[in-house]
């Protein structure tokens, strides 16, 4: 008698779909737990980015005298998706370990655990984007400052949000599965995400990278920089929500016009995200039966 074969990826996805109500319930539970004992509740989720943007704007516009147009709006447009990915990964890293007492007793698709962490953050992300959008609109409608966010580009928002979700889910699955066996993973991930924040255009622009690189290595350097899918994803969010304006790249060049959006890099980010999701699902699927048996 041979040992029973592991169910395949498709079968697992079907099983996950069967348990979708549990996934929604677990997501709701995460959201409830998060603010259960806090007075301000969801407002914290909005306060955090606002304070960050305030500090960044002060540092860049006042201390560093950066003259880029619409700086705060650009930072926020990139900060929200970056933070969504960041928090999803950090929350899901602990998700399986935290639920161990339950995992050891009951069967349910283990994927539900990291997915609920990602979805809970996704809900916040969507709300934050909504609030940001409303803010841009009200600002434009009332004071005439800036531009209306209602442009044809808004049509790109749903697929863009989806690609971000795919990327966050893929990485979260990988990290949560590995973290069960090696708790070092979450520390490594913490460092990578911290460095990733600087290697993703959140507080600066891709134009800064292009003009900052030495002319001889510009092409290759810019492409290497775009290997990180979050570079195109955050830039796409900026171009969708905020009108691109002249960017202050410093040095002799000063203010330069924005670089046209590169669809090639964006296509890479989309494909890479899907590959990562596929890798995450396969890896998680292979490892999940050993979660309860970790040595």
């Amino acid at each position: 008698m041979k040992s029973p074969a592991l169910p395949g990826l498709l079968e697992n996805l079907r099983e996950l779909w069967r348990f979708r109500e549990l996934l929604w319930a677990m997501t709701e539970r995460e959201l409830r737990i998060r603010y259960k004992n806090s007075a301000l509740g969801f407002i914290w989720s909005l306060l955090n980015p606002l304070v960050t943007i305030l500090v960044m704007t002060m540092v860049f516009k006042v201390f560093l005298r950066n003259q880029s147009e619409g700086y705060s709006a650009h930072v926020l447009a990139a900060y929200l998706p970056y933070m969504f990915v960041n928090l999803s990964i950090l929350d899901s890293a602990q998700s399986v370990l935290a639920a161990m007492p339950m995992v050891k007793k009951v069967y349910f698709p283990r994927e539900v655990l990291p997915l609920a962490s990602v979805l809970a953050n996704f809900v916040h992300f969507l709300l934050a984007i909504g609030v940001f959008f409303a803010y841009l609109f009200v600002l434009w409608a009332v004071t005439g400052f800036g531009d209306s966010p209602f442009t044809w580009r808004v049509a790109f928002l749903p697929p863009l949000v989806l690609i971000t979700l795919v990327f966050a889910t893929g990485v979260s699955l990988i990290v949560s599965a590995l973290n069960v066996f090696y708790e070092d993973v979450k520390y490594v991930v913490g460092v990578v995400l911290y460095i990733g924040f600087f290697l993703t255009p959140v507080m600066y622009f891709v134009e800064n990278v292009w003009h900052g690189l030495p002319a001889a290595y510009r092409g290759i350097g810019f492409s290497l920089y775009h290997l990180n899918p979050l570079v195109s994803i955050t830039t796409a969010f900026r171009r969708t929500l905020v009108k691109a304006g002249p960017v202050d790249v410093g040095g002799a060049e000063g203010k330069v016009p924005p670089i046209p959006f590169d669809w090639g890099y964006f296509a890479w980010a989309a494909v890479a995200s899907m590959l990562i999701l596929w890798l995450g699902l396969s890896l998680f699927n292979r490892m999940k039966w050993r979660f309860v048996e970790r040595p």
Binding site: L22, M26, R29, R32, I33, P101, M102, K104, V106
Partner: peptide, 20 residues
């Protein structure tokens, strides 16, 4: 096992029944 300490008995019952 699987009860979350910060949630009420009612919420935990709901959730555990769904897990089962």
């Amino acid at each position: 096992a699987g009860f979350h300490p910060d949630l009420s008995g009612r919420e935990n019952v709901m959730f555990n029944a769904m897990i089962l």
